[in-house]
Structures are given as structure tokens and as C-alpha cells.
């Protein structure tokens, strides 16, 4: 409904200094409390990948990023098998939790929208 990345108020909050001042500590707490970092995952690993556009974006990662992503998934499944979190020193640190996939998804989405726009363009010759 809202595209691969879902609906977000973040750009609006980021644009206002007061609002982002209020929300930042809460957001940092929430991200940690969500628990994915404790299993060695980054936020972009949780993006719904069963979509053509996200698959295309994953294809655009560098080989290194792709291998790292696969490794994080394996490690997380192992944690799931053991019913255990990773040892604390192996948790993903907040500064490591970067949106490595988001720029690619945004780009693919933009391309698809442009293709749609060209497909349905009406031509006026003046």
C-alpha cells in the first residue's frame, strides 16, 4: 500500500529541531528494545524482501554487502535454533545499524514510478 518501505513520519520529525530533540532518545530506546540488534541483525535486514523491487535493490548491493547480509541471517537463524541472544559484545551497535539497503530501494521505487509515468504519459505537441 505504501511501497516497500512503509509509511513513515520520520522525514517530518527530522525536519523540525524541537520534534527531533524530543523523539531521538525515545527512538534510540525503541530501536534497542525492538531486539533485532541482539540477534546480530540490522534494521534493513527486516525489510520485507518478498517483492520484486526489494529483490532488485538487493541485487544492487556490493558483493561484500551481500555476503555480510547472508552471514547475519545465518547467525540470526542459529540464535533462533539455540533460543539465545548473541553474547553482548557481538550485538549490532547503534552506529553499525546503518540503512545500507534503503537508498537502493528508494532508487528502484523512483525508477518504477518513472516507468509508470512514461507508460501512461499523454503527449501534447505545441
Amino acid at each position: 500500500m505504501f511501497g516497500p518501505l512503509g509509511f513513515s513520519l520520520a522525514p517530518y520529525i527530522k525536519s523540525s529541531r524541537t520534534l527531533s530533540g524530543w523523539f531521538k532518545p525515545f527512538a534510540a530506546w525503541y530501536a534497542q528494545a525492538a531486539g533485532y540488534r541482539q540477534f546480530g541483525l540490522k534494521y534493513d535486514d527486516l525489510l520485507v524482501e518478498e517483492r520484486d523491487d526489494v529483490q532488485r535493490a538487493i541485487g544492487r548491493l556490493t558483493t561484500r554487502e551481500g555476503y555480510d547480509r547472508a552471514y547475519r541471517f545465518k547467525r540470526a537463524s542459529q540464535c533462533s535454533v539455540l533460543q539465545k541472544q548473541l553474547p553482548k559484545e557481538e550485538w549490532i551497535k547503534p552506529e553499525e545499524d546503518v540503512r545500507y539497503l534503503r537508498p537502493h530501494v528508494v532508487e528502484v521505487e523512483k525508477e518504477n514510478l518513472e516507468r509508470q509515468a512514461w507508460d501512461t504519459a499523454s503527449v501534447k505537441r505545441n
Binding site: 525508477e111 518513472e114 516507468r115 512514461w118 504519459a121 503527449v123
Partner: peptide
């Protein structure tokens, strides 16, 4: 222009 934009616009 994007690649598709170049192609479609030239086609027009």
C-alpha cells in the same frame, strides 16, 4: 534524464 527517460523521450 534517466536511461528510460532518454529512450522514451527520443521515441516521442
Amino acid at each position: 534524464r534517466s536511461a528510460i527517460g532518454t529512450v522514451r523521450e527520443s521515441e516521442l
